[in-house]
Design a protein around this nucleic acid. Sequence first.
DNA 1: TAAGATTGAGAAGTCAATCTTC
DNA 2: GAAGATTGACTTCTCAATCTTA
Lengths: 167, 167
Amino acid sequence: VNFDASAAQDVVWLNHDQQQAWRALVEAHARLLARLDFELQSSLGMSLADYQVLVHLSEADGQALRMADLAERLQLTPGGLTRRLNGLVELGLVERRVCPEDRRGSFAAMTPSGLATLEAAAPIHVAGVRRYVIEPLTNDQLLTLGEALRAIDAGLVSPIDAAPGPG
Amino acid sequence: VNFDASAAQDVVWLNHDQQQAWRALVEAHARLLARLDFELQSSLGMSLADYQVLVHLSEADGQALRMADLAERLQLTPGGLTRRLNGLVELGLVERRVCPEDRRGSFAAMTPSGLATLEAAAPIHVAGVRRYVIEPLTNDQLLTLGEALRAIDAGLVSPIDAAPGPG
DNA sequence: TAAGATTGAGAAGTCAATCTTC
DNA sequence: GAAGATTGACTTCTCAATCTTA
C-alpha cells in the first residue's frame, strides 16, 4: 500500500490521473443518469427513480420488501421512501401491506400492473445501459470498472459518525 | 424475476459482470458523494455543491465565469445556477459582475473570502478523495477507471433530443 | 424505551414564463 | 425575434417530530 504517514497533516494533492479519474466519475455519472432518466421518461412517462423501486421489488421473495429494507437498497431515508412510494401507489404499480409479524412495519409489494410496467420499461432501460455503458468499453475496461467501483464502495460501508480526524 | 423474451424482441439482457459494473457505478457514486458532502459539511459547514462552484471559479481566468459557462461545467440548468449562486453571494464567497461586452450576461466572480474558504476546504475534500477513491485502488485500476468513465462520458455528449429509435 | 413508518417544514433542483439586452 | 439570466410554481428529497406498536 502506498501510504504517506504524514497524510493527516500534510495535504497531498491529486496528480493528473487521479484528478481525471475523480472528475470523470462525477461528470460521467451525472450525464449518464440524466440520459437514462430522460429515455424512460420520454418513452413511458416513467422516472428512473420509480423504475429502480420496481427492479428491487421484482428481485425480492414474493416481490415485496419491508420499507426499511427497500430504503436501504435504494439509499433513501425512510421519509424519502414513503414519499416515493406514495407516487407508485397512486399509479397502482405498488401496494402497501401490513406486516403480520410486526404490525409497526409495512411491506411494499409490486402489483400485477407494476410487473407489467416493469416488463415494458426494462428493455428500454437495458438498451440504454448497453448503449452508454457496455458498448463504449472493452470487456477488460468493464471488468476493471466494476472491480474498482466495488472497492470504493467497500471503503464506504462504515457508518457516517464523524469526519475522520487526525488520529 | 426472469422476463419472457417475447416481451421484448431484440432486448439483449445484461450478463453478470455487466450488471455488477452498472450497479456498482450507481451505488458507489451515491455513497461516495454523500460521504464527501458530509465531511465538508461537518468540518466547515459547507456543501459539496458550493465547493464545486468555488473550484470551477478558481480555475478560470480572473477567477470569474459567465453564468451560462459555469452552469454547463456544473451540469446545472440556468435557473439552478442562479439559485445556487444566491447562497454563495449571501455568504460573501462569490459576487456578480455585469459583463461589459454583453450587458445581458453576468459574471460569477470569486471574492477574496471565497478564495480563503476554498483554500480551507480543499485539504479536507482532497483528503476524502484520496481516502475513498485513490487509496482503495491500485494504480492500474485508477487509470482504467478514468479511461472507462471518459469513454462513457464521450458517448453522452450528443444532445438530448429524443430517445434513440430502432435504427 | 425503542423501532418502523409517516408527516410538516424546509432545501435545492427543474421547467416554463418573463424581463432585459442583443 | 432570440439569447442570458432570473423568477414562480412545482417536484423530490432530507431532517426532526410524531404516532403506533414491540
